[in-house]
């Protein structure tokens, strides 16, 4: 996992509610192995026209936000399918932090597995960040201090689950962490199989 501490840069304003993972990455792009090239396909149905050329009206294709590291989003971002390719595609496009009022549960878990930071802020705060608009207005997301710094210097605090935060800061490996409990797992298995052999 890629550790996360702090990121600064333009913040893409994409405030629609209920952006699902099918929109973030079409399933057809996940039939081949590997994560390479998924960044090119992020938001493909919005980002490209039928002939394959870029859609200049889509915000991620516009100059200040092309390759921007922060995405501002509406409620329930990442709802729907469990495809982790949605996270790989966003990171492949350059996004390191998504700020939204709420996230799909499975997408949220997938973000933390990969070092993409999901930040929950109230919609009003997200609208304020978006209002700073284009140009070179830079937003900072600081996980150590749990602050989002707006272009005008406003510092907006956010909360991150302590276990998730520690894992992101250190880039922890989850399998190694689970394996530390190997003795407890084996004891649990033996007891569970004795008490409920059908289970």
């Amino acid at each position: 996992m890629t550790p996360f501490r702090q990121v600064s840069g333009p913040a893409i304003p994409w405030l629609k509610p209920n952006t699902d993972t099918d929109v973030i990455i079409p399933i057809q792009d996940l039939l081949r192995p590997g994560r390479e090239g998924l960044g090119e396909r992020c938001f493909a149905r919005l980002r490209y026209r039928e002939d394959g050329s870029e859609n200049p009206d889509f915000v991620c294709n516009q100059p200040p936000w092309r390759g921007a590291p922060i995405l501002l989003a509406g409620e329930n971002f990442g709802c729907g399918s469990s495809r982790e390719g949605a996270v790989w595609a966003l990171m492949g496009m350059g996004v390191r932090a998504v700020i939204a009022p709420s996230f799909g549960d499975i997408f949220l878990a997938n973000c933390f597995q990969n070092g993409l930071l999901p930040v929950r802020l109230p919609m009003a705060a997200i609208r304020r960040l978006a209002a700073h608009g284009g140009g070179n207005a830079s937003v900072t997301v600081d996980l150590e201090r749990q602050l989002v710094i707006a272009p005008d210097g406003e510092a907006i605090p956010f909360a991150t689950d302590p276990r998730r935060r520690e894992a992101l800061l250190d880039g922890l490996d989850e399998i190694a962490l689970i394996q530390r409990h190997a003795a407890a797992i084996e004891a649990f298995r033996a007891q569970s199989e004795a008490e409920r052999p059908w289970q």
Partner: peptide, 12 residues
């Protein structure tokens, strides 16, 4: 679950 959690689940 996603792909990372699936690998963790299968391994442990």
């Amino acid at each position: 679950i996603g792909a990372s959690e699936l690998a963790q689940a299968l391994a442990t």
